[in-house]
Design a protein around this nucleic acid. Structure first.
Lengths: 187, 187
DNA sequence: GTAATATAACTAATAAGATTAGCTTTGTCA
DNA sequence: TGACAAAGCTAATCTTATTAGTTATATTAC
């Protein structure tokens, strides 16, 4: 069919992930991305719907990868240790994928994007199951999910941005904060 | 001096704040900003150092305004109520300035930008004083500051991005989460 | 009061990026 | 073997940021 076979959406998305994690959000241009996969910029449009489409693909990739890693982390675990494990996996994921995670936050979020919403709900669902294994249910369980997600997301993005001074070990802070929150809900 | 007098850095920054809060981060271009203040784009360079300089000014404005509002909120208050008040003011600020807050996170953070670092430390300092009024000191107090900032920053940015489903009232979640965290540290 | 100066506006031009239109090549299949 | 569709390409357009060089005018010095 084409002059060179082998290019597809998956390859493009993976190259974009690599680029944005290695060189930062500002480095993600279609020009550079095209060079990375060996084509000219307009050729990318045969596989993705321009820059907005690429951002959407990245957000989807991000949500699915995060859900997958979280799900795998708590297999066969329950209770407070499982919750701490989830928090640590979430943070490790963001630290390993700083550019991807950040750009996913800025991506468009159309309400009819079923795939993306499903992947995001998977993330919540995994946390919810763990929290229910601790004995919480209904709205309270949902509040706790939101709290833990806010805590980990907030801490790690501030940490990545250098928003904390350098004095105090972030690792220690994180463990302290997570256990403080979990202690708060156990009351 | 010029053909029209009256334009200065402060006016430009205020117009940028207005623009970015009203129309979102993507709407902040020098072209549109220049139109808002009634000049051509190159004229802005007489007052700000291009787009990077503008982002830095916005980050500084953001940090100072947030510090000022936080400081004012806890005058004459102490203890757990003061801490909850701080959390609520921080969240209210982000909700009132979504574009400004978000773009400030993306702004460059040179380590020698004393003014910006000072303003950011003011924010931490205010929270620290309140936490010390609760009887915590040293590293533990710093962990608590990081935790509370992460919680509020994380919750509100996720809330603004629509990251939570619509089912459950965010106001209720927020109060629950903040009091849960505070309960955790009181133990 | 007038001339010199510095400031801040301007126009014009350049470069990078996203995107579209339209052309070309080539694998697949009838 | 020839038609077709997919996927690459070049060329062109539009937006944005930025720089260079010019012009107009408020202030200041005389």
């Amino acid at each position: 069919m084409p002059r060179k076979t082998g290019l597809n959406r998956e390859t493009i998305v993976e190259a974009a992930v690599e680029l944005v994690n290695r060189e930062g959000v500002g480095a993600l241009t279609l020009h550079r991305l095209a060079a990375h996969v060996g084509v000219r910029p307009p050729s990318l449009y045969n596989h993705i719907h321009g820059m907005p489409g690429l951002l959407r693909e990245l957000a989807l990739f991000n949500a699915r990868q995060l859900a997958e890693q979280m799900g795998r982390a708590v297999i066969g675990q329950s209770g407070a240790p499982a919750l701490e494990k989830l928090a640590n996996v979430y943070r490790a994921y963001i630290k390993a994928n700083p550019g991807l995670y950040w750009i996913s936050l800025s991506a468009p979020q159309p309400e009819d994007d079923i795939e993306l919403i499903e992947a995001q709900q998977d993330i919540i669902q995994i946390a919810l199951l763990v929290i229910e294994s601790l004995g919480y249910q209904g709205e309270q369980a949902l509040h706790i999910v939101r709290g833990l997600q806010s805590l980990v997301h907030g801490f790690t993005t501030l940490e990545n941005l250098g928003g904390f001074g350098l004095e105090l070990d972030c690792e220690v802070s994180f463990q302290y904060i997570v256990s403080t929150f979990i202690r708060g809900i156990s009351h």
